[in-house]
Amino acid sequence: MIYLLTNCRVYTGDAVLVEHDVLVEGTTIRAIIPQTQRPAQVAQIDGRGLNVCPGFVDVQLYGGGDSAFGLAPSQTALQQLRRHTLRYGTTSFLPTVPTNAPAVVDHALAVVKDALPTMPGLLGLHLEGPYISPNKRGVHPAEFVRVPVLAEVANLLDRGRGVLRMLTLAPEVLGPVERALLQAAGIVLSAGHSDASYEQGMHAFAHGFTAATHLFNAMSPLTGRAPGLVGAVYDDPAVRASIVVDGRHCAYASVRISHRLLGPRLFLISDATAATTTGPYCFRPQDDSFVDAEGTLAGSGLTLMQAVRNCVQHVGLPLAESLRMASLYPAQVLGLDQRLGRIAPGYRADLCLFDEELNVRATVLAGQLQWHEASARPTTPLSVPGENRE
């Protein structure tokens, strides 16, 4: 199928274009065309005056809506998660499993492996743990926290071949041989749930770790005499860091300061989860996030579009940059920015259409357009800093 998406403002990831159409052929973006050069005899889809941006890329979420896939993986839960993410503009995602029993991890790997050939936008699996610091485990059950040994890491890589894409672990618990094995497998190593010193963090970022997981949360803080892992993230010139912008995981001012220091190396994750009542993780909602039985913060209730809205409304970032933080920058973390995260020729036709209040109104996944009802959640029209709202 070939069609033109017309009548919309286009946030390409590099520029903001008006009076341009997006030409989609099959699953691919073929061109961005000025309206004055619109080809004849090509079907048109009216964008209804909305904004269009690259579909979002969420590399860390456990659930959302009716799905708690990361806590109780199943085919049904994965399908529910796919529907939920697509409804709110996320076209590509890494379902995430926190520290759990090996049987649960194996089941999650098997479910994702089975779904990969038939579920567009499913990028693999992100494991958060079990190789984390006992001092920074948060809600991760202590009984499942492990020290990585070579045979076990090799076995995990064998079980996860073709599925395991990203691994959050504490760099201070990982030996050089195990780290080299993970690097050779092409796994994205992200420092998190870590009590690493500044020196340990800088060493990790110089030796294979390319990211840090949910900046500030469950990691050694920046202080005057001990810069910690947060300080290492700030000081390293290349490492990227995810952040949860819900106003609870960290203050909006901390997001603003971090963006000033990190720029395009700071990217959004939803860290979204769902309520559960059985198993090692029992979460209940509290103030648009989730906590465990003791009240410990366990995850967010965010969608990436809500995180974008918070970046604009509360952090004060330009809309175009906030959109990149949810699309282009996480695609770069996974090395997929040559086909995801931009509206450009040759990129996959994954798009998010949204209104002036930043409500998702439609998504395009691999060229297939799906309209959604307007969000029932009331929002206030935005005054977008640093944007030309022609």
Rank of each mutant, 00 (worst) to 15 (best):
L4E: 07
L5E: 12
T6H: 06
R9Q: 12
Y11I: 07
V16R: 08
E19K: 13
E19T: 09
H20G: 10
V22P: 04
R30M: 09
I32L: 15
Q35S: 15
Q37P: 04
R38E: 13
A40S: 15
A40W: 00
Q44R: 15
N51V: 07
V52D: 02
F56L: 12
Y62C: 11
G64S: 09
G65N: 03
G70F: 01
A72H: 14
S74D: 06
T76N: 12
A77Y: 03
R82T: 14
R83C: 13
T85S: 14
G89H: 06
G89W: 05
T90E: 08
S92K: 00
F93S: 07
L94I: 01
N100F: 00
A101P: 01
A103E: 15
A103H: 06
V105H: 00
H107L: 15
H107T: 14
L109Q: 03
L109E: 03
V111R: 04
V112Y: 10
A115Y: 05
A115C: 13
L116G: 01
L123Y: 02
G124V: 03
L125A: 05
G129T: 05
P134K: 08
V139A: 11
A142G: 11
F144Q: 12
F144N: 13
R146Q: 15
V147P: 00
D158G: 15
E172G: 12
E172P: 04
L174W: 00
R179M: 07
L182W: 00
Q183W: 00
A184P: 03
G186T: 03
S190A: 13
A191E: 03
G192K: 01
H193E: 14
H193Q: 09
S194N: 05
D195F: 02
S197K: 04
Y198G: 13
Q200D: 13
G201L: 06
H203M: 11
F205M: 08
G208F: 08
A211Q: 01
A212Y: 02
N217H: 10
M219A: 15
S220H: 09
L222F: 14
T223E: 14
P227F: 04
G228Y: 02
G231Y: 03
P237F: 07
P237I: 09
A241M: 07
I243W: 05
V245N: 03
D246R: 02
Y252G: 06
I257G: 06
H259K: 00
L261F: 12
L262R: 01
R265M: 08
L266E: 08
F267E: 02
T273Q: 05
T278C: 10
F283C: 11
P285L: 12
F290Q: 03
D292E: 13
G295D: 07
S300P: 08
V308F: 10
R309H: 13
R309Y: 09
C311L: 15
P318Q: 12
Y329C: 11
P330S: 14
A331C: 12
A331L: 09
L334H: 02
L334C: 10
Q338G: 09
R339L: 00
I343D: 05
P345W: 06
Y347S: 04
R348L: 10
D350G: 11
C352G: 04
L353M: 08
D355W: 06
E356L: 11
L358E: 05
V364W: 05
G367F: 06
Q368A: 15
Q368C: 08
Q370D: 11
H372C: 00
S375R: 01
P378Y: 05
T379K: 14
P381Y: 02
